[in-house]
Design a protein around this nucleic acid. Structure first.
Length: 503
RNA sequence: GCUCCGUUCGUCUAACGGUUAGGACGUCUGCCUUUCUAGCAGAAAAUAAGGGUUCGAUUCCCUUACGGAGUACCA
């Protein structure tokens, strides 16, 4: 990479960042780190009507939780700041004026109502209203009006917008690092608004000006921007600036049904679409987040990296550092990727196994009130025995409650299977055998109990199943000898006695 | 409607003209002389369709179908 790599993630603070946005941020981050570049966060808040309180902080918290923090952005290394477009408002007008001076843009005085009327009118006739070369002279703008009339309107303080003058009969050759060459006929392009009547630039102008001023080298963004690429490239040309390289990422689609995954899908689909929990300031409605649902950041990142990208090898488990090394824009796919809630669970199960048991014990203890008085070291040992069956910390209690509390009752189906004729006598004998194991270590227990079963040709199932039921209350859990060792001699005998008495 | 982008197992994907079309998730089956939501082993499962180009097409071209995005003084 010859030039300095500087990439930006430029979300709009209109609500929580959704999982597709996180993926875009991640790819920018990976690309930046891979090339020793800079990852920039820019807040695109040019639409004041859609601003949502708390959204910016949410975005920053989400990036931090994923361990993909920005290098430059609001409140951090502000060499190219400010990084909020609302704070850069004063910058944009002069650039719009330059475009007017060079003949690449013009003033337009049409009201929203007038434009709406034209659109509806065209629609009724089965046509599409496009504000461009073929009709701009019939509309109210500085191209159709005389210089004097235009100036009079401006002096009068009439509301106006500034539109880009899209050229006629040209073919644009656009380049996208993921999609290759794209040809566009300028005749179908419309004269996009660059500067709004409220004095703010639109996304298109602000985006190009800021990317240029912030010396962005590569624009990596969602595919929804592909149709705007023609305009953006023309703007760079009109300004006489060198354009960055563009890469449009495939969209993340709903697991089933139609369309891209969107914020409004919320929890309707049965899984979170946000990295962190979000409480809507308007109605206090809460949307769940991956963090709060018990997902590990590493798992989410690993999963997201594989949505639209792959390393070309059969390795699927990647740490963030490994992702940085392996990442390559050339290996990003073109087609949209469906979100798979099962696969992200599988990743989480894997990352669960890599967690430290002591850390998990702390988290488990704070989540489960029954554990308040229990020693964390004991909890950590229990976790060591059961975590291979867990995907989330919230699975722990269901998998391990019997290590802390004796079972109240026995699973009905399992009882029928395990409690048979002779079980009562066998369990009584078992109590005697266990009582005689003095050190109560797993190995000794195993030796004694298995020895007794084998010598007397009893059959493992006849002893182990009722024993497991006595200890656990159901046919689940790790090795019964581990369980006996953990809960101790007295508790083990107590639980078997309870079964004997109930038979 | 129009414009652009896309299309390999149910899902995420590998293959950059020559492979028995590979892997992962999920599903199913078996094993674990003691359970399981775990583990291990195995199985089923795909090149959207039709034309070209080529000795040979998943791969290149065209058409159709389907999917996605965009079409705002929103980003």
């Amino acid at each position: 990479m010859s030039k300095n790599v500087r990439v930006r993630f430029a979300p709009s603070p209109t609500g929580p960042l959704h999982i597709g946005g996180v993926r875009t941020a991640l790819f920018n981050y990976l690309f930046a780190k891979k090339h020793n570049g800079t990852f920039i966060l820019r807040i695109e808040d040019t639409d004041q009507n859609r601003y949502v309180e708390g959204a910016e902080n949410y975005i920053i918290d989400a990036l931090n939780w994923c361990n993909i923090p920005f290098d430059e952005g609001p409140g951090k290394n502000e060499t190219f700041g400010p990084y909020r477009q609302s704070e850069r408002k004063h910058l944009y007008k002069q650039y719009a004026d330059k475009l007017i001076a060079s003949g690449n843009a013009y003033y337009a005085f049409d009201t929203s109502d007038e434009l709406d009327f034209h659109r509806k009118d065209h629609e009724a006739k089965g046509k599409t209203f496009i504000y461009n070369w073929h009709n701009r002279l019939k509309l109210k703008n500085s191209l159709s009006l005389s210089t004097e009339d235009t100036q009079a309107k401006l002096d009068n303080g009439d509301h106006y917008v500034i539109r880009f003058k899209s050229p006629q009969d040209e073919t644009l050759h656009l380049k996208d690092s993921i999609r290759g060459d794209i040809k566009i006929d300028t005749n179908i392009l419309d004269d996009k608004v660059l500067f709004k009547s409220d004095g703010m630039p639109t996304y298109h102008l602000a985006n190009i000006v800021d990317d240029h001023l912030m010396e962005i080298s590569h624009v990596i963004r969602g595919e929804e921007w592909l149709p705007s690429l023609a305009l953006h490239i023309q703007l760079y040309t009109a300004f006489g600036w060198e354009a960055p390289e563009f890469a449009h990422l495939p969209l993340i689609l709903k697991p089933t049904g139609k369309g891209k995954l969107s914020k409004r899908d919320g929890d309707k689909l049965g899984f979170p679409v946000f990295p962190l929990e979000w409480k809507d300031p308007k109605d206090n409605a809460t949307s769940s987040g991956y963090k709060e649902e018990g997902y590990f950041a590493d798992a989410v990142v690993n999963f997201l990296a594989f949505l639209g990208w792959n390393p070309g090898t059969e390795q699927e488990l990647f740490s963030l550092d490994e992702l940085i090394t392996a990442f390559d824009l050339e290996r990003v796919n073109k087609a949209g990727a469906r979100f798979d809630p099962d696969k992200i669970k599988w990743f989480n199960h894997h990352y669960m196994q890599e967690q430290n048991n002591d850390d998990l014990a702390e988290a488990f203890k704070t989540q489960q009130s029954e554990l308040a008085e229990i020693d964390v070291n004991y909890i950590a040992m229990v976790i060591g025995l059961i975590k291979e069956r867990a995907t989330f910390i919230s699975d722990f209690w269901q998998l391990s409650s019997y290590f802390f509390i004796a079972p109240e009752n026995y699973d009905e189906k399992a009882s029928k299977k395990a409690f048979k004729e002779g079980t009562k006598d066998l369990m009584s004998t078992l109590i005697t055998i266990i009582s005689n194991v003095n050190d109560f270590e797993v190995e000794s227990l195993q030796k004694e109990v298995k020895g007794w079963i084998t010598e007397n040709e009893i059959g493992f199932g006849k002893v182990m199943m009722p024993l497991r039921l006595a200890l656990v209350g159901a046919l689940q859990g790790p090795d019964v000898f581990d369980i006996m060792y953990m809960i101790g001699k007295n508790e083990t005998i107590k639980r078997i006695e309870k079964v004997v008495n109930s038979l």
